[in-house]
């Protein structure tokens, strides 16, 4: 299934990325190494905005991001990720690391044209399909199923 995938998120240097579900902060630090590598000039760097609904986790992941040297590229926000983060939208890429029943509409609105979103869609019972969403120039949405995954449920207003 997933082994046929080729760079699902297609990240490039300079991309502005929204992550829903910061968890430990490890994802966003790794994404920072791709969109804003230390080896390239700062003027070319992209950045990551990552939303965490659980306050102590947001604080902890912020601490991890600072300690590992990514605070200049990653911003952690304690907020309901199911609503996205319109303040900094639109985003080149959106990555959702929790499972939703359906794609929360604000996330589609906050995706740039030609942007890509990855989101696990399915039940809360730890089986979902990883869906790749592309927004074309005319605003149309194309969905591709990349195969089975198991994530915790997306919580919040538009979660499950």
């Amino acid at each position: 299934m997933v082994s046929i995938m080729n760079e699902a998120l297609e990240l490039e240097i300079g991309h502005k990325v929204l992550e829903v579900g910061s968890g430990s902060g490890w994802h966003s630090a790794t994404i920072a190494e791709i969109v804003a590598p230390s080896s390239t000039p700062r003027s070319e760097w992209g950045c990551i905005f990552t939303l965490e609904i659980i306050k102590p986790l947001a604080e902890n992941s912020r601490k991890n991001i600072i300690n590992s040297g990514y605070a200049d590229r990653v911003k952690i926000i304690n907020a309901d990720g199911s609503l996205g983060y319109s303040e900094e939208s639109p985003y080149d890429r959106i990555i959702v690391t929790a499972a939703a029943r359906e794609v929360p509409p604000p996330l589609i609105d906050q995706l740039k044209t030609n942007g890509i979103m990855l989101i696990p869609i399915g039940s809360a019972s730890l089986f979902q399909n990883l869906i790749k969403i592309k927004k074309s120039l005319d605003g149309k949405i194309k969905k591709e199923n990349l195969g089975g995954v198991a994530f915790v449920p997306l919580t919040g207003k538009l979660g499950q």
């Binding site: 997933v2 760079e7 699902a8 998120l9 490890w26 791709i34 659980i54 986790l57 198991a150």
Partner: peptide, 16 residues
């Protein structure tokens, strides 16, 4: 808080 740090293979699926 009932949350996890993803398995490296799961995160790799997102990035490729």
């Amino acid at each position: 808080h009932g949350q996890t740090c993803s398995a490296p293979h799961s995160f790799s699926l997102f990035l490729g």
